[in-house]
Simulated assay, not measured.
Amino acid sequence: MSTDRRLRVLRAIVEDHVRTSEPVGSRALLERHGLGVSAATVRNDMAQLEAEGLIQAPHTSAGRVPTDAGYRRFVDSIDEVRSLRPAERRAIKDFLADPTDLDDVVERTVRLLAMLTRQVAVVQYPSLTRSVLQHVELVPMGERLMIVLITDTGRVEQRLVDLPEGTDAEDIRGLRDLVNGAASGRTFTEVHTALEALRADRPGEHLLGVVCTVVESTLTEEREERVALAGTSSLVRHTTDFGPALEEVVQALEEHVVLLRLLQHTQPGEGLLLEPSVAVTIGTENDHSGLTTASVVSTTYGADGVGALGVLGPTRMDYPGTMGAVRAVASYLSEVLDNR
């Protein structure tokens, strides 16, 4: 029973500190929360929580604040994240309705997430390596041929190759149908096998070989994934929380590699919470020395986790509310991509 009670005391300290940004004392806990115990019991529980490294005194006052370990215990004890209000859900749906293209979808999503959470929002573009090839279009452009690859998430890649003399529109249409018949609707790994078989069946067709090679190399080449960022101005509201580390936080946000690494915690097996794709990393858990005063709440979106999104803020964060907002936005983004 005392363990359960101490957890209630810890939750109360976290909630009060997040709301007020001030150290929390035993008197305030008794006044604001129905703990049903004496002041002496609360003080004893706080002493035990401090001995366990879950709270600490920031200075010589009677109040205590959560440590990273305290926030972790709090987050791990969350049974249900806070649901968005119906008005908020309608706003999300309206905000993401009828996008013009993939860039528009991502830009709307990252701005929406920043507004809902009042934190820095990050959205990873759908990853090519986890996508399905939807269509290959071949567009003649004088002496050159544009090869256009369209994925199931709406991502588009374009490449130009030289067009052999004497190639007419019917030849190009036939080639397009051949390539799509072999590759469309397949994962990128499957595309490679399918196009290898197609080339083997038609070894003398030079342009077919060129197109297949370009498609394969485009889908397998190493490239930095793209991310979109919004809400960096919110950091100004948290200068006290971040302290001297604020400059390091800003520098980290300027590096896309760092942002992608932060979102990797949403992948299976990385300390997931509640649903298979919701994750929280707190303070020193972040894989970057400049983010020891920050927390990241992230999740995947789309079929098979084709991309990830999340928010970054101080460790003094409304975790249930932030987790609910991140999960809801990811759900709506998945619907938008499914309907494209």
Rank of each mutant, 00 (worst) to 15 (best):
T153R: 14
G185F: 00
R27K: 12
Y319A: 06
G142S: 06
E270M: 11
A325R: 13
L195R: 11
G185D: 02
R202H: 13
L273N: 01
R85F: 11
D168C: 07
V258D: 14
V296S: 03
D162Y: 14
G305T: 01
V156Q: 15
C212I: 02
L84M: 06
R11V: 00
S2M: 12
R340Y: 14
C212H: 09
A12C: 01
D177I: 09
P126L: 01
T151C: 09
S234H: 15
E222I: 14
R111V: 02
R32W: 06
V132G: 02
R90W: 12
L333W: 09
L30I: 02
G142I: 03
L54W: 04
V191Y: 13
R327H: 15
P86G: 05
G231W: 03
R186M: 08
R173C: 09
R327P: 13
Y71V: 01
E221M: 13
P58D: 05
I78P: 01
E285C: 05
T299E: 12
L7N: 14
V161K: 12
L84H: 04
V280D: 07
A28W: 01
L263P: 00
V122Y: 05
H238C: 02
V215F: 03
R6Y: 13
L259T: 04
H238N: 09
R72Y: 04
L291Y: 07
F95K: 12
L312N: 10
R82I: 03
L54T: 00
A303I: 12
L10S: 07
E225L: 07
G36L: 01
N180W: 05
L112H: 07
A62Y: 11
G321Y: 04
I78C: 04
A252W: 10
L262E: 06
A51E: 14
L235A: 02
R32I: 02
Q267V: 12
S127V: 06
D68C: 02
R85K: 14
T151K: 12
A230S: 08
S131R: 10
E137C: 03
V75F: 02
R19W: 00
V122L: 03
L112W: 02
D4S: 10
F188P: 13
R11L: 00
R340P: 01
